Simulated assay, not measured.
Amino acid sequence: MIILACATELECRHVMTRTGRKPDGDTRFDFAGLDFLACVTGVGPVAAALRAGELLERHPAAAGIVNLGICGSFDPRASLGAICVASAEIWPEYGVHSSDGAEEPFGFQMLQDLPLPQVNRLELDPSAAARSMGLRLPESWPCGTSLTVAGVTGDPQRAAILLARYDAATENMEGFGLALAARRKGIPFLEARTVSNPVGVRDKARWNFRLALDSLESVLPTLTGAAA
């Protein structure tokens, strides 16, 4: 069974559109010959980590976690609705922050039993994760570093700092917590998101949540080969 994790019921509903099912609590369903458990995690890294821990305790034989949802893009040229895959997850808020924009990760690990080479970064292998769960990751989907934040980036200056510091492709609010839970459990993790807005831009005329949500509807069929 693959855990299919979405932050909100709205995202989950769009992800499941072509399965013929709707989310109703934790919803277990078969699609394209694969066994899924669709779950709403709640918004933000704390909610996602708590929910992941609960799910893995209840379903210790889970084959992996797939995180689908919407995101912001650090590339102003990125098309709204485009699908992006996380090749690494970083939690930039785990550290010391100064008013001049300086940041420094803590010198100690988050978890005593899970030392990371970089304390706030998880390297991911999306192709290997997809294969191990019986999924098909299209080569045309771009991969890049994703930042997980507790509060979205609210201005271009902050966005520029994060882009320069982490060479980030996208910004989300749940990925790191879910990836960390999967790493601790020793199961694969795959994160694919659709772009809803440029990071740091608060002008809603440049957002398109509807397009990003509609684009989500093709992700699961493509990953499972049902769209072929």
Rank of each mutant, 00 (worst) to 15 (best):
L178T: 01
D214T: 03
A62F: 03
V66N: 11
C84I: 07
R206L: 15
S146G: 10
F74K: 07
A169G: 14
V152E: 03
E54A: 07
V96D: 10
T8Q: 11
P221L: 14
T17M: 13
C143Y: 04
G20M: 08
V96Q: 13
G25R: 06
L4E: 01
R21D: 04
C39M: 05
V195H: 12
T148R: 05
R121H: 08
G72Y: 09
W91I: 01
K22M: 11
Q118D: 11
A102N: 10
M1E: 07
L135T: 06
A192I: 13
I70L: 15
F31N: 00
T27L: 13
A47I: 05
L216Q: 09
V96Y: 12
A88V: 01
L178E: 01
A82G: 14
V40I: 15
L213H: 09
L211I: 08
G81A: 08
V201L: 11
V43I: 15
A169I: 05
E89H: 07
F74L: 14
A179K: 02
A179E: 02
M16Y: 02
F106E: 07
M16V: 03
A179N: 06
N172K: 02
L147S: 04
L163Q: 11
P60V: 14
R202L: 12
I3P: 00
D167L: 15
T19R: 07
M133N: 05
N120S: 10
W91S: 08
L162G: 02
